[in-house]
């Protein structure tokens, strides 16, 4: 009895330690996020002096007003939405049928095709040959350069294939064939309606990668009107190009008067722009988390 008591006490202590550890992880990850949110609606001088450390101080929406007045951000936003929708649609059109075909055990040549895909995960032509290819194809400064070179990812094809393999019963396919159903109809009218979760997972994975990508626009685009949001963000956040142009050409009189310090305007815009650009993902993420996690888990089954 005594030993049992002792052990349960040490178990309790261990559990307390675990909870403390997780709580610490929570604080470390959450704090910067809350800080940015608060800083975006606080008066800049409180932020830079350190007086604002958790909750907003000197509430102001000027940062957001400046962001809203910036035509570059609007154009970038529009471009990003367009690229994300178009890119993700192409991704789905390429990935889902291929993954379904590769999931069929009666599909002759699947090992060969799968191997051909897998090789590209471990060996690639590299940055420069890929760039030269896109150039050769005449896609420089075209939106296709952002979309076609990333039409599919091997990893996502594997995830979708694993899903089809494990959820579409073989009997269903055999029965459909017995009834004279073609593969085309089988896929579109029977398999796809049963595959809503994987379509969601794929759309999310591809969508997020399009939304967040900046490097291909950096190397392939030279027309600023085509820049996606991430390129505009790069100018504001990283290159710190705080010219009148990036902070909004026509800052309305009252805001300009309220903030005589250019650096303060810059800082305020930064926090606001982080929130504005990450907002769509932050808002949908908690509702879709289940799907994201599912995607990783399906992939890990046969990774």
């Amino acid at each position: 009895m005594v030993t049992a008591m002792k052990e349960s006490r040490s178990d309790k202590l261990f559990l307390v330690f675990i909870y403390l550890f997780l709580a610490a992880a929570l604080v470390v990850v959450l704090y910067p996020l809350i800080y940015i949110l608060s800083a975006s609606i606080s008066t800049p001088k409180f932020v830079s002096s350190g007086e604002m450390w958790l909750l907003p101080k000197g509430l102001t929406l000027d940062g957001y007003k400046l962001v809203m007045q910036n035509p570059k951000i609007w154009i970038g936003y529009g471009n990003t939405i367009f690229y994300t929708v178009l890119g993700t649609s192409i991704n789905l059109l390429v990935t889902l049928p291929a993954a379904y075909a590769l999931s069929r055990s009666d599909f002759i040549g699947r090992q060969f095709i799968m191997a051909m895909f897998l090789v590209t995960m471990f060996f690639s032509g590299g940055l420069v040959p890929s760039y030269l290819l896109v150039k050769e194809l005449g896609m420089i400064n075209s939106i296709w350069a952002l979309i076609l070179p990333v039409s599919a990812s091997v990893w996502n094809i594997i995830v979708a294939r694993t899903f089809f393999q494990s959820t579409i019963p073989k009997e269903l396919q055999e029965a459909a064939h017995m009834d004279g159903c073609t593969n085309m109809r089988l896929f579109f009218q029977i398999v796809l309606p049963l595959s809503a979760p994987i379509i969601a997972v794929m759309a999310l994975f591809y969508g997020v990668s399009h939304w967040n990508s900046y490097f291909s626009s950096l190397i392939y685009l030279n027309d600023e009107m085509k820049y996606p949001l991430q390129m505009v963000l790069r100018q504001i956040l990283v290159l710190q190009e705080m010219t009148a142009e990036t902070t909004g050409a026509s800052i309305s009189g009252d805001i300009a008067a309220a903030m005589n310090n250019k650096a303060e305007i810059a800082a305020l815009v930064k926090y606001a722009v982080i929130i504005v650009s990450t907002l769509p993902i932050i808002v949908v993420y908690p509702f879709l988390q289940r799907y994201f996690v599912q995607g990783v888990m399906i992939g890990s089954v046969k990774g």
């Binding site: 049928p97 075909a101 069929r104 060996f123 599919a152 593969n183």
Partner: peptide, 30 residues
């Protein structure tokens, strides 16, 4: 079997094309 499943080859065609053009062609460019 291959003939019966000819549509499956159509299904993988875009992906195969994509990997040939955007992954294998750059390897040739090496």
């Amino acid at each position: 079997k291959m003939l019966q499943n000819w549509e499956l080859y159509l299904f993988v065609a875009p992906a195969v094309l994509y990997f040939l053009i955007f992954h294998y062609a750059p390897m040739y460019g090496i």
